[in-house]
Amino acid sequence: MNTNGKHLRQALSVERWENEGGACVKDTPDSQYGRRIERDRSWTIYHVFTGVPVRIGDCTLIDLSISEATDGMLSLNRRNATLRQERSRCQS
């Protein structure tokens, strides 16, 4: 695995920690993520509505392999779906 895969794993771990109350998170459960291929054939995970690459802590999720981008995107979207369900359940 390349260094970017290591950074992706670390970034997702930091995000999980932040979402469990470790620090402030600028993200919301309403965010949705996509992946795109860049000109250099690397992959980026980005916010669907803004097009901006996702930033978790000090790590921007760019220069990824297709499998790293897919796994990261799916993980972030699943996490937000769970947060939306929890928020919906609390509001009922």
Rank of each mutant, 00 (worst) to 15 (best):
M1T: 05
M1Q: 06
M1Y: 11
N2G: 08
N2T: 08
N2D: 10
N4G: 06
R9A: 06
R9P: 10
R9K: 03
Q10F: 09
Q10C: 12
L12A: 11
S13H: 07
V14A: 09
V14C: 02
V14T: 11
R16G: 05
W17Y: 07
W17G: 03
E18N: 14
E18C: 15
N19E: 07
E20C: 08
G21L: 02
G22A: 10
G22E: 01
A23N: 02
A23F: 01
A23T: 12
C24V: 15
V25T: 11
V25R: 07
K26V: 10
K26Y: 15
D27F: 11
D27N: 13
T28E: 12
T28S: 11
T28K: 14
P29D: 10
D30L: 15
S31H: 15
S31R: 08
Y33F: 08
Y33R: 01
G34L: 14
G34C: 14
G34N: 13
R35W: 09
R35F: 01
R36P: 06
R36Y: 04
I37P: 05
E38H: 10
R39S: 09
R39C: 12
D40W: 03
D40R: 10
D40I: 03
D40H: 07
D40V: 00
D40F: 03
R41F: 01
R41Y: 08
R41Q: 10
R41I: 12
S42I: 01
S42D: 00
W43M: 04
I45Y: 11
Y46M: 08
Y46E: 01
H47C: 04
V48F: 09
F49R: 08
F49V: 13
T50Y: 11
G51D: 02
G51C: 08
G51T: 00
V52E: 04
V52A: 04
V52K: 12
P53S: 01
V54Y: 04
V54T: 05
I56S: 00
G57K: 00
G57D: 05
G57S: 02
G57W: 09
C59Q: 11
C59S: 11
C59N: 10
T60L: 09
T60G: 06
T60P: 02
T60H: 07
L61P: 06
L61D: 04
L61G: 00
I62D: 08
I62S: 04
I62Y: 08
D63V: 00
D63Q: 11
S65L: 03
S65I: 02
S65H: 03
I66M: 05
S67F: 06
S67T: 13
S67N: 00
S67L: 06
E68Q: 07
E68K: 07
D71A: 10
D71P: 03
G72W: 09
M73P: 02
S75N: 07
N77D: 12
N77E: 02
N77Y: 10
R78Q: 03
R78E: 09
R78N: 12
R78V: 02
R79C: 09
R79V: 07
R79M: 13
R79Y: 04
R79L: 06
N80V: 05
N80K: 08
N80I: 01
A81D: 15
T82M: 15
L83I: 11
R84I: 14
Q85E: 14
E86Y: 14
E86V: 15
E86R: 13
S88E: 14
R89M: 06
R89H: 13
C90V: 12
Q91P: 10
S92E: 15
